[in-house]
Protein backbone atom coordinates (compact mmCIF):
# COMPACT_ATOMS: atom_id res chain seq x y z
CA UNK A 1 0.00 0.00 0.00
CA UNK A 2 1.45 3.30 -1.01
CA UNK A 3 0.94 5.95 1.56
CA UNK A 4 2.49 8.59 -0.64
CA UNK A 5 -0.78 9.36 -2.34
CA UNK A 6 -4.12 8.95 -0.65
CA UNK A 7 -7.23 9.57 -2.69
CA UNK A 8 -10.34 10.47 -0.80
CA UNK A 9 -13.40 11.08 -2.82
CA UNK A 10 -17.09 11.59 -2.75
CA UNK A 11 -19.80 12.33 -5.22
CA UNK A 12 -18.67 15.80 -6.04
CA UNK A 13 -14.96 15.78 -5.89
CA UNK A 14 -11.85 14.28 -4.48
CA UNK A 15 -8.99 15.13 -2.26
CA UNK A 16 -5.45 14.00 -2.82
CA UNK A 17 -3.33 13.76 0.26
CA UNK A 18 0.24 13.89 -0.95
CA UNK A 19 3.53 12.99 0.64
CA UNK A 20 5.69 16.06 1.07
CA UNK A 21 9.09 14.36 1.03
CA UNK A 22 8.97 12.52 -2.23
CA UNK A 23 10.45 14.25 -5.30
CA UNK A 24 7.67 15.58 -7.46
CA UNK A 25 8.26 13.44 -10.59
CA UNK A 26 8.07 10.26 -8.50
CA UNK A 27 4.89 11.47 -6.90
CA UNK A 28 3.44 12.15 -10.31
CA UNK A 29 4.24 8.59 -11.39
CA UNK A 30 2.44 7.20 -8.37
CA UNK A 31 -0.58 9.35 -9.11
CA UNK A 32 -0.58 8.05 -12.68
CA UNK A 33 -0.53 4.46 -11.49
CA UNK A 34 -3.21 4.98 -8.91
CA UNK A 35 -5.62 6.49 -11.37
CA UNK A 36 -4.94 3.85 -13.95
CA UNK A 37 -5.87 1.29 -11.32
CA UNK A 38 -8.96 2.83 -9.90
CA UNK A 39 -9.97 5.39 -12.46
CA UNK A 40 -12.52 3.18 -14.15
CA UNK A 41 -14.82 3.49 -11.21
CA UNK A 42 -15.33 7.15 -11.87
CA UNK A 43 -16.68 6.86 -15.35
CA UNK A 44 -16.67 10.22 -17.03
CA UNK A 45 -17.13 11.89 -13.70
CA UNK A 46 -16.72 15.60 -13.50
CA UNK A 47 -14.98 16.49 -10.33
CA UNK A 48 -13.26 19.13 -8.40
CA UNK A 49 -9.94 18.27 -6.86
CA UNK A 50 -8.07 19.56 -3.85
CA UNK A 51 -4.59 18.86 -2.55
CA UNK A 52 -3.41 18.34 0.95
CA UNK A 53 -0.22 17.50 2.77
CA UNK A 54 2.17 19.21 0.37
CA UNK A 55 2.45 22.65 -1.04
CA UNK A 56 2.43 22.68 -4.78
CA UNK A 57 3.21 25.30 -7.35
CA UNK A 58 0.55 26.17 -9.86
CA UNK A 59 2.49 24.30 -12.51
CA UNK A 60 2.77 21.18 -10.40
CA UNK A 61 -0.94 21.24 -9.72
CA UNK A 62 -1.70 21.44 -13.39
CA UNK A 63 0.59 18.56 -14.21
CA UNK A 64 -1.17 16.43 -11.59
CA UNK A 65 -4.53 17.33 -13.09
CA UNK A 66 -3.20 16.38 -16.52
CA UNK A 67 -1.92 13.09 -15.14
CA UNK A 68 -5.33 12.31 -13.70
CA UNK A 69 -7.20 13.16 -16.86
CA UNK A 70 -4.81 11.25 -19.08
CA UNK A 71 -4.98 8.10 -17.03
CA UNK A 72 -8.66 7.97 -16.15
CA UNK A 73 -11.96 9.06 -17.59
CA UNK A 74 -12.29 11.72 -14.91
CA UNK A 75 -12.68 15.30 -15.89
CA UNK A 76 -11.30 17.74 -13.43
CA UNK A 77 -13.36 20.87 -13.64
CA UNK A 78 -11.48 22.85 -11.05
CA UNK A 79 -8.85 22.84 -8.36
CA UNK A 80 -9.92 23.72 -4.88
CA UNK A 81 -7.97 25.70 -2.41
CA UNK A 82 -7.64 23.27 0.40
CA UNK A 83 -8.02 25.21 3.58
CA UNK A 84 -11.08 24.15 5.53
CA UNK A 85 -13.03 22.70 2.66
CA UNK A 86 -16.48 21.78 3.69
CA UNK A 87 -18.62 19.40 1.78
CA UNK A 88 -21.82 21.31 2.14
CA UNK A 89 -20.35 24.55 0.98
CA UNK A 90 -18.65 22.86 -1.91
CA UNK A 91 -21.78 21.13 -3.02
CA UNK A 92 -23.56 24.45 -3.02
CA UNK A 93 -20.87 25.86 -5.22
CA UNK A 94 -21.08 22.95 -7.60
CA UNK A 95 -24.81 23.29 -7.86
CA UNK A 96 -24.52 27.01 -8.40
CA UNK A 97 -21.90 26.38 -11.04
CA UNK A 98 -23.98 23.84 -12.86
CA UNK A 99 -26.95 26.17 -12.76
CA UNK A 100 -25.04 29.04 -14.21
CA UNK A 101 -23.08 26.99 -16.68
CA UNK A 102 -25.78 24.58 -17.73
CA UNK A 103 -24.21 21.64 -19.51
CA UNK A 104 -21.07 23.45 -20.43
CA UNK A 105 -18.82 21.82 -17.87
CA UNK A 106 -17.39 19.33 -20.30
CA UNK A 107 -17.01 21.96 -22.92
CA UNK A 108 -15.09 24.11 -20.59
CA UNK A 109 -12.24 21.72 -20.10
CA UNK A 110 -12.05 20.46 -23.64
CA UNK A 111 -12.04 23.96 -25.02
CA UNK A 112 -8.87 24.60 -23.17
CA UNK A 113 -6.96 22.29 -25.43
CA UNK A 114 -4.58 21.07 -22.78
CA UNK A 115 -7.49 19.64 -20.88
CA UNK A 116 -6.31 21.27 -17.71
CA UNK A 117 -8.60 22.93 -15.30
CA UNK A 118 -8.16 26.51 -14.45
CA UNK A 119 -7.18 27.49 -11.03
CA UNK A 120 -9.63 29.81 -9.48
CA UNK A 121 -8.31 31.52 -6.44
CA UNK A 122 -9.33 34.09 -3.93
CA UNK A 123 -10.39 33.09 -0.51
CA UNK A 124 -14.00 34.11 -0.83
CA UNK A 125 -14.43 32.89 -4.36
CA UNK A 126 -13.25 29.36 -4.29
CA UNK A 127 -14.66 27.16 -6.94
CA UNK A 128 -17.39 24.64 -7.06
CA UNK A 129 -16.97 21.01 -6.29
CA UNK A 130 -16.15 19.39 -3.07
CA UNK A 131 -13.92 16.92 -1.41
CA UNK A 132 -13.03 15.97 2.07
CA UNK A 133 -14.18 13.17 4.23
CA UNK A 134 -17.62 13.24 2.65
CA UNK A 135 -19.43 10.43 4.34
CA UNK A 136 -22.28 12.53 5.49
CA UNK A 137 -24.96 11.01 3.32
CA UNK A 138 -27.48 11.10 6.04
CA UNK A 139 -27.03 13.97 8.34
CA UNK A 140 -28.13 13.35 11.85
CA UNK A 141 -31.52 14.97 12.17
CA UNK A 142 -31.42 18.15 14.09
CA UNK A 143 -27.67 18.00 14.18
CA UNK A 144 -27.42 21.72 14.14
CA UNK A 145 -29.80 22.10 17.02
CA UNK A 146 -28.46 19.23 19.08
CA UNK A 147 -24.82 19.85 18.51
CA UNK A 148 -23.07 22.39 20.62
CA UNK A 149 -19.44 22.77 21.59
CA UNK A 150 -18.64 19.13 21.06
CA UNK A 151 -21.73 17.93 22.88
CA UNK A 152 -24.40 16.05 21.05
CA UNK A 153 -27.67 15.12 22.62
CA UNK A 154 -29.82 12.31 21.25
CA UNK A 155 -29.55 8.76 19.95
CA UNK A 156 -27.76 7.87 16.76
CA UNK A 157 -29.79 5.38 14.80
CA UNK A 158 -28.76 2.95 12.10
CA UNK A 159 -27.39 4.76 9.08
CA UNK A 160 -26.71 8.00 10.90
CA UNK A 161 -23.19 9.32 11.14
CA UNK A 162 -21.94 11.93 13.52
CA UNK A 163 -18.61 13.37 12.46
CA UNK A 164 -16.75 15.87 14.55
CA UNK A 165 -13.48 17.64 13.90
CA UNK A 166 -12.58 17.47 17.59
CA UNK A 167 -13.43 15.44 20.68
CA UNK A 168 -17.10 14.72 21.05
CA UNK A 169 -19.42 13.81 23.86
CA UNK A 170 -22.63 12.08 22.99
CA UNK A 171 -25.44 12.04 25.49
CA UNK A 172 -27.47 9.14 24.21
CA UNK A 173 -26.92 5.80 22.52
CA UNK A 174 -25.17 4.75 19.34
CA UNK A 175 -27.35 2.04 17.83
CA UNK A 176 -26.12 -0.82 15.64
CA UNK A 177 -25.38 0.50 12.17
CA UNK A 178 -24.75 4.05 13.37
CA UNK A 179 -21.31 5.59 13.48
CA UNK A 180 -19.70 8.25 15.57
CA UNK A 181 -16.44 9.63 14.30
CA UNK A 182 -14.08 12.19 15.71
CA UNK A 183 -10.57 13.36 15.11
CA UNK A 184 -10.19 13.45 18.87
CA UNK A 185 -11.71 11.44 21.69
CA UNK A 186 -15.19 9.99 21.81
CA UNK A 187 -17.19 9.91 25.01
CA UNK A 188 -20.58 8.26 24.94
CA UNK A 189 -22.85 8.77 27.90
CA UNK A 190 -25.06 5.92 26.93
CA UNK A 191 -24.70 2.60 25.16
CA UNK A 192 -22.30 2.10 22.27
CA UNK A 193 -23.79 -0.62 20.10
CA UNK A 194 -22.61 0.64 16.73
CA UNK A 195 -19.28 1.78 15.41
CA UNK A 196 -17.09 4.41 17.02
CA UNK A 197 -13.99 5.95 15.57
CA UNK A 198 -11.63 8.12 17.57
CA UNK A 199 -8.57 9.85 16.21
CA UNK A 200 -9.88 9.61 12.66
CA UNK A 201 -6.99 11.74 11.49
CA UNK A 202 -4.61 8.97 12.51
CA UNK A 203 -4.05 9.84 16.16
CA UNK A 204 -3.51 6.55 18.01
CA UNK A 205 -3.54 8.13 21.44
CA UNK A 206 -7.25 8.89 21.41
CA UNK A 207 -9.76 6.95 23.50
CA UNK A 208 -13.37 5.90 23.29
CA UNK A 209 -15.44 5.84 26.42
CA UNK A 210 -18.95 4.46 26.85
CA UNK A 211 -21.19 3.74 29.79
CA UNK A 212 -22.26 0.55 28.11
CA UNK A 213 -19.62 -0.79 25.74
CA UNK A 214 -21.04 -3.25 23.21
CA UNK A 215 -19.62 -1.95 19.95
CA UNK A 216 -19.79 -3.67 16.59
CA UNK A 217 -16.51 -2.08 15.70
CA UNK A 218 -13.99 0.30 17.25
CA UNK A 219 -11.44 2.33 15.38
CA UNK A 220 -8.71 4.27 17.08
CA UNK A 221 -6.28 6.06 14.82
CA UNK A 222 -5.12 3.47 12.33
CA UNK A 223 -6.34 0.44 14.28
CA UNK A 224 -9.61 -1.36 13.88
CA UNK A 225 -11.13 -3.89 16.25
CA UNK A 226 -14.30 -5.85 15.66
CA UNK A 227 -16.51 -7.32 18.31
CA UNK A 228 -15.81 -10.99 18.98
CA UNK A 229 -17.93 -13.44 17.02
CA UNK A 230 -20.54 -14.89 19.25
CA UNK A 231 -20.00 -18.43 20.39
CA UNK A 232 -22.91 -20.66 19.72
CA UNK A 233 -25.07 -20.67 22.80
CA UNK A 234 -26.05 -24.26 22.73
CA UNK A 235 -25.69 -24.92 26.41
CA UNK A 236 -29.15 -24.32 27.65
CA UNK A 237 -28.13 -25.16 31.15
CA UNK A 238 -25.93 -22.14 31.39
CA UNK A 239 -28.25 -19.81 29.65
CA UNK A 240 -29.90 -18.53 32.73
CA UNK A 241 -26.63 -17.52 34.23
CA UNK A 242 -25.66 -15.61 31.15
CA UNK A 243 -28.93 -13.81 30.96
CA UNK A 244 -28.40 -12.23 34.35
CA UNK A 245 -28.72 -8.50 33.84
CA UNK A 246 -25.34 -6.90 33.55
CA UNK A 247 -24.94 -3.82 35.66
CA UNK A 248 -23.81 -0.69 33.87
CA UNK A 249 -20.16 -1.15 33.36
CA UNK A 250 -18.41 1.96 32.08
CA UNK A 251 -15.50 1.00 29.88
CA UNK A 252 -12.81 2.74 27.97
CA UNK A 253 -11.10 1.66 24.77
CA UNK A 254 -7.52 2.64 24.05
CA UNK A 255 -4.93 1.56 21.52
CA UNK A 256 -1.70 0.18 22.86
CA UNK A 257 1.05 -1.62 20.97
CA UNK A 258 -1.08 -2.07 17.90
CA UNK A 259 -4.11 -3.52 19.66
CA UNK A 260 -7.27 -1.94 20.93
CA UNK A 261 -7.96 -2.75 24.55
CA UNK A 262 -11.25 -2.32 26.33
CA UNK A 263 -10.85 -1.81 30.04
CA UNK A 264 -13.14 -0.99 32.90
CA UNK A 265 -13.04 2.65 33.75
CA UNK A 266 -11.02 2.85 36.90
CA UNK A 267 -9.04 5.59 38.49
CA UNK A 268 -5.83 3.97 37.34
CA UNK A 269 -7.03 4.25 33.76
CA UNK A 270 -7.21 7.99 34.04
CA UNK A 271 -3.58 8.24 34.98
CA UNK A 272 -2.55 6.37 31.86
CA UNK A 273 -4.35 8.62 29.46
Amino acid sequence: MTKEVIIKSNKYGMELILDDKLPFPELLDIIRDRFQESGNFFKNAKMAVSFKGRSLTGEEELSIVDAIMENSPIQIVSIMDLAGVQEERMKERLDAFQESQGGSVAQKSSARGTGSASRQSGAGQKTQGQSGSGRKAEAVPGQQANFQNGFYKGNLRSGQVLECPESVTLIGDVNPGARIESAGNVVILGALKGTACAGSGGDNSCFIFALDMQPIQLQIGEYIAKSPDREKESRHLFKREKAAPAAYNPQIAVARRGTIYIEPMTKGCLDNL
Binding site: S9, N10, E37, G39, F41, I216, Q217, K226, D229, R230
Partner: peptide, 20 residues
Protein backbone atom coordinates in the same frame (compact mmCIF):
# COMPACT_ATOMS: atom_id res chain seq x y z
CA UNK B 1 -24.51 -13.95 7.50
CA UNK B 2 -23.21 -12.88 10.91
CA UNK B 3 -20.46 -10.72 9.42
CA UNK B 4 -21.65 -7.31 10.54
CA UNK B 5 -18.72 -6.69 12.84
CA UNK B 6 -16.12 -7.08 10.10
CA UNK B 7 -17.23 -4.32 7.82
CA UNK B 8 -14.66 -1.63 7.27
CA UNK B 9 -15.22 -0.66 3.67
CA UNK B 10 -18.32 -1.09 1.58
CA UNK B 11 -19.67 -1.14 -1.95
CA UNK B 12 -19.80 2.64 -2.21
CA UNK B 13 -16.21 2.98 -0.98
CA UNK B 14 -15.13 0.58 -3.70
CA UNK B 15 -17.09 2.34 -6.40
CA UNK B 16 -15.78 5.71 -5.32
CA UNK B 17 -12.21 4.46 -5.21
CA UNK B 18 -11.74 4.97 -1.48
CA UNK B 19 -10.39 1.47 -1.16
CA UNK B 20 -9.42 -1.43 -3.35
Amino acid sequence: LGLENRIVYNLVDVVEGKCR
